[in-house]
């Protein structure tokens, strides 16, 4: 599997999630600062994992 071409601004460090007052806070990567309900965070997490799996299996289209 080949890595995708580097794109400026792509984050290589993960954001950090924490729980506060019954909500989920997501800090980073840079530019990200979001508060979510537990449901929204859970569904976002699932979506992120699914997208990450698709990205990991990305292959460059043949020309």
């Amino acid at each position: 599997m080949r890595s995708p071409p580097p794109i400026a601004g792509t984050q290589t460090r993960p954001g950090i999630a924490s729980a506060e007052a019954g909500l989920v806070l997501l800090d980073g990567p840079d530019g990200i600062a979001v508060t979510m309900t537990a449901y929204a965070a859970s569904e976002t997490g699932k979506s992120l994992i699914e997208a990450a799996q698709r990205a990991e299996h990305w292959t460059e289209p043949e020309v």
């Binding site: 924490s18 506060e20 007052a21 909500l23 806070l25 600062a33 508060t35």
Partner: peptide, 11 residues
Amino acid sequence: ICGITNVHANR
């Protein structure tokens, strides 16, 4: 001002 929630600002 910072585009975050009050809970986030508190933390």
